[in-house]
Design a protein around this nucleic acid. Structure first.
Length: 224
DNA sequence: GCCCAGGTGGGTA
DNA sequence: TACCCACATGGG
């Protein structure tokens, strides 16, 4: 299994090149905002919302907390689910102020397990968002599982289609070195694979069988 | 017009 | 626990 997962990663890298995902120039808070805004949403739409927030100079926890919710919703509108997401952003800002006096450094100073448990308690932060924050904003080694990871594992037979988030995460973290940089880029590579090679919900590239990865995708990562 | 996107929370049985 | 459904814009 270790060989398989490492080989898959090596082939993805060879095909797509390094992805340089987060952290971006914006810093940890912008990563957290992005992680919330990208829930079930294309990143291009998230970028528009981030531009709006940046232009309005609202990309700090304190300002997110102070701004009127309706205005916040208007600004994040391009990312979809804008009312929900405005509420989620405010929930995070309120949590941070209450629990850590508004300091991300204090939040991140915790041990990984405690940090994850705390994040999961915040409205709007589920397992994937929590892990994205831990990995991309806090820089701690945890593997982020997303829809593409799930479909890839199912289609390669590495896990059942009904495998839980925790089971899939366990699969990767048990068979890869515990390395934040590796986890960071691996997740990004899987998203690339998913975007371009029929790991969509209902693949319809015209040549691949339903619920299968297309030939090109298999060539990229190999047949297992 | 239809499908999909770097999910999550709430309700019901 | 295991399903459902609401949430919503923008691009292909």
């Amino acid at each position: 299994m270790q060989t398989q997962l490492e080989t898959i990663y090596a082939r993805l890298c060879a095909h797509f090149g390094p992805q340089h995902w987060w952290p971006s120039r914006g810093g940890a808070f912008e990563i957290i905002v992005g992680a919330i805004l990208t829930q079930n949403t294309a990143w291009t739409n998230v970028e528009k919302a981030l531009v709006n927030l940046k232009r309005a100079r609202l990309l700090t926890p304190a300002r997110i907390q102070r701004v009127e919710r309706a205005r916040l919703a208007r600004l994040v509108r391009p990312s979809g689910y804008f009312n929900q997401k405005a509420k989620k952003l405010k929930a995070f800002a309120a949590f941070l102020r209450k629990k850590h006096r508004g300091s991300l450094a204090r939040l991140f100073a915790q041990e990984l397990g405690a940090l994850r448990a705390e994040l999961l308690g915040v409205f709007g932060i589920g397992p994937e968002t929590a892990d994205s924050i831990i990995l991309y904003a806090a820089g701690k080694p945890i593997f982020v599982v997303d829809a593409y990871t799930r479909r890839l594992c199912a289609r390669l037979g590495l896990a059942g289609a009904d495998a839980s988030y925790d089971e899939l995460q366990q699969l990767f973290s048990a068979h890869l070195p515990r390395d934040a940089a590796l986890f960071n880029d691996y997740h990004a590579q899987l998203v690339m694979l998913g975007k371009y090679f029929c790991l969509k919900r209902a693949p319809r590239c015209g040549t691949c069988p339903a619920r299968e990865m297309c030939t090109t995708g298999k060539e990229v990562i190999g047949n297992w």
